[in-house]
Design a protein around this nucleic acid. Structure first.
Lengths: 245, 245
DNA sequence: CGATTCCTTGAGACAGCTCAATTTCGGTGG
DNA sequence: CCACCGAAATTGAGCTGTCTCAAGGAATCG
């Protein structure tokens, strides 16, 4: 908690270069510094229910949150995975249509809506960046539609692991050929809700990949990928997007 | 063809009030008039292959186009349905990651990328509107993820018909309680590719809904919905979004 | 430790897929 | 106007991947 609150200076912020504020000039940061505040959530906590008023928009500074939709009978589909630097909320619309859940301890850098929208109007750098991020998310959502609509259970699992590996790599060190460690913040049930499967099917497919030595489990949540190319082969995609060196 | 080319004046344009140019001022239209040009495509024609260079961004003026992704083995997932006023292409990235297909005769209002991007920089109205449209599309894509991931075949069909009925209604006359006519520009195969099903399953489910008098077929492509509420009940969603009077 | 939560594994059921005929529609030319 | 053709749609029968229901087993936390 106090640790998170230490991120007072935008210049020290870990997501400084990839969040919605990435392109801001020093004088724009001054405005941001004034309207921002941090909020912390514990793992498992609900950040906002679908239909609730969200008085802020925010950047994820630390941790992982999910966006999900639930039908009356309980069927749930995860529609977004928010990792550090991702943006939460929609300017101009304060009611979120999704449940937002912290699936690990999460720190948000929150902006009150009114001043943030004012900032968007007065400086192009924030709204340009937000448009870019939104277009990226739209592409990601469309890629995910292929996973949900057309892939087998095994391909779905491989796709999820590959995507998380890539995003963790993009944020941290480059993705080499060596073994990759994925610290998976999702339960089997959460994975199932992301992939449009049941948790039993997720478990079975993970066991199968483990049996074939494509992945190695280290406890429940940590997955080691000895050779990412073997995993990518299981996604059903053609020879990746050239992201791997 | 000549009919489409008659749309020379933005002020007469049928999508004037809902496209990316919706919020433009008269002087901004003058710029648009100068950089725009119309292109026509016949039903079935490919507008752009995945990976191809697209030298323009565009608004759909007339007709229906689809965005889709195809895996090496031929599995195809439609990831977007572009109706009149929808925007096609991504500013700042000239290579489309999707196949774009005209599924009816289509007219595009095209803008060369460079001047369009310049326009976005100089006037806020275009980029504001584009951000809004992109956020709407992102929400739609996320809603579709629920359909793909969690709904049954019957619910998927009902959801597709409901969405098309709503979008046609939003563009044209208000959606009353009376019978609604849906002029479906999609083949069974295209519907299957949108819904993550096979065309046989689509056909069977449509037959089932027909058998229960929830829909009435008038030829192959025209569907009449006597009571939209009965159809909405089959989508699995809770009592719609209040869009119906 | 004890308890709780999460995960694994098994066996049977079923929704949707595959493969294979037909049938219907919509256009086209005689 | 009608007969014909090809594309699209329908329908059937059997199969299979994933789900459901159910019983244990392992990790994590007080």
């Amino acid at each position: 908690m106090s640790e998170a609150l230490a991120d007072q200076q935008c210049s020290d912020c870990p997501i400084r270069h990839s969040a919605v504020c990435a392109r801001c000039e020093p004088h724009e940061f001054e405005v941001l510094e004034q309207i921002k505040y941090y909020r912390n959530y514990e793992s498992g906590q609900i950040i906002s229910w679908s239909g609730d008023e969200m008085p802020f928009v925010a950047s994820v500074v630390r941790g992982v949150a999910t966006l999900s939709q639930t039908m009356e009978d309980g069927r749930t589909q995860m529609v977004g995975l928010l990792l550090p630097s991702d943006f939460l909320g929609r300017p101009g619309r304060s009611i979120s249509p999704y449940d937002v859940t912290a699936v690990s301890d999460v720190t948000l850098c929150c902006f009150r809506r009114k001043p943030f929208e004012q900032l968007m109007r007065t400086t192009p750098h924030v709204s340009e960046r937000l448009l870019d991020m939104t277009l990226d998310e739209l592409d990601a959502a469309r890629d995910w539609m292929l996973v949900l609509g057309r892939k087998t259970a095994r391909e779905k699992i491989a796709s999820l692991l590959t995507i998380i590996a890539r995003r963790e790599a993009a944020l941290g060190m480059a993705l080499s050929k060596g073994p990759i460690v994925i610290d998976l913040p999702l339960t089997r049930e959460a994975m199932a809700n992301y992939l449009g499967l049941t948790l039993e099917t997720v478990s079975r497919q993970i066991s199968a990949l483990k049996g074939e030595k494509i992945i190695v489990l280290d406890g429940k949540r940590r997955i080691v990928v000895p050779d990412i190319r073997r995993l990518i082969m299981e996604t059903g995609d053609d020879l990746d997007g050239g992201m791997i060196a």
